[in-house]
């Protein structure tokens, strides 16, 4: 597994998606900007990675907080253009916090303006390579992937990770075709010539076939039982909040799951627990997964 020298991946964790820097002569393009709370470090990392080259453009695979939260800060510091998937434009134009899964999930991002959009079938030039824009609905109905047939590299966003893919939110909240779209997106990946996948989170990986196999297996579980997806979603949302807050008082968690709209809706639609029972279940699940621990009345992010 080898990436072209013109491509650098700045890998962090789950709160900030990978920043992918694609360089060509004196200019560079960056794919995805990370979470807003990490923006100062993102700017410093990009400054190092660019090493004096001009950042011409910032491109988003989709517009969730961990991928576009740093857009405004990058735009302000580097004066670059911003390009987003065409389907995301209305939500960005109206700064639709529900569509963007921000306040409804207790997440934040800084509003930004974009310069242009792209859509399925377009070709973007990044790092001296031509990248096909491929629609990747599922996790986000308007998400895209970028594929370079020449370099045989796929920038998959949250449509495919080494172990899984991003929560298929739309299926849980009214879009009943979203799991089928997820399947079609994975099948589309299977038709591409790919030596290396650069996912939205985690390190680049080589064996796309094995990753697809794991993804299809996971998808089948959700297709068989939508409550499985709902439980996964609830755990992921609380994990994300905990990664930002670092600790949360255990006593306040029942009120938290009642107050945060996406958690409350998951509960009323699928989980059907008391708030206290949902909070207790979530804490146990996060502990079991090694994502959190509890001490002195607090739920603590791993490493605290």
């Amino acid at each position: 597994m080898k990436l072209p020298r013109s491509i650098r991946v700045i890998e962090r964790g789950w709160l900030s998606a990978n920043n992918i820097v694609l360089e060509e002569r004196s200019e560079a393009v960056v794919v995805d900007s990370g979470y807003v709370a990490h923006a100062p470090q993102t700017l410093a990392l990009l400054e190092r990675a660019l090493a004096g080259k001009k950042l011409a453009r910032l491109v988003n695979t989709h517009c969730h907080s961990d991928h576009m939260g740093g857009n405004a800060a990058i735009q302000k510091k580097f004066g670059c253009a911003i390009s987003i998937p065409q389907g995301e434009a209305p939500a960005i134009d109206n700064w639709d916090e529900q569509q963007l899964i921000l306040a409804v999930a207790d997440q934040r991002a800084q509003a930004f303006s974009y310069d242009d959009t792209f859509r399925d079938g377009d070709v973007l030039q990044m790092g001296g390579l031509d990248w096909q824009v491929i629609a990747a609905p599922g996790h986000d109905t308007h998400a895209v992937m970028f594929h370079s047939p020449e370099a045989r590299v796929l920038i998959s966003g949250d449509a495919l990770w080494e172990n899984g893919f991003g929560v298929v939110f739309p299926q849980l909240f009214g879009r009943e075709t979203a799991l089928a779209e997820t399947r079609a997106t994975l099948e589309a990946v299977g038709r591409l010539d790919v030596d290396v996948v650069i996912p939205g989170h985690g390190p680049p990986f080589g064996d796309a076939g094995a990753a697809l196999e794991r993804a299809f297996h996971r998808l089948e579980g959700y297709e068989q039982d939508i409550a499985r997806l709902a439980r996964h979603c609830a755990k992921v949302m609380l994990s994300f909040s905990l990664l930002e807050k670092r600790s949360m008082p255990l006593a306040e968690l029942p009120a938290y799951v009642a107050r945060v709209p996406i958690l409350a809706e998951l509960n009323s639609r699928y989980l059907r627990m008391t708030h206290a029972a949902m909070a207790e279940w979530l804490v146990n699940e996060l502990e079991r997964a090694g994502a959190a621990g509890r001490r002195e009345g607090l739920l603590l992010a791993r490493g605290e």
């Binding site: 961990d66 172990n163 939110f169 989170h201 992921v236 994990s239 997964a289």
Partner: peptide, 22 residues
């Protein structure tokens, strides 16, 4: 967007999502 397990790979990144320089 994210999931509840750590990223795969032979040597795991020590990033714990604090991502703030001192």
């Amino acid at each position: 967007m994210k999931r509840d397990e750590a990223p795969a790979g032979d040597v795991q990144s020590p990033c714990n999502n604090v991502c703030r320089m001192n």
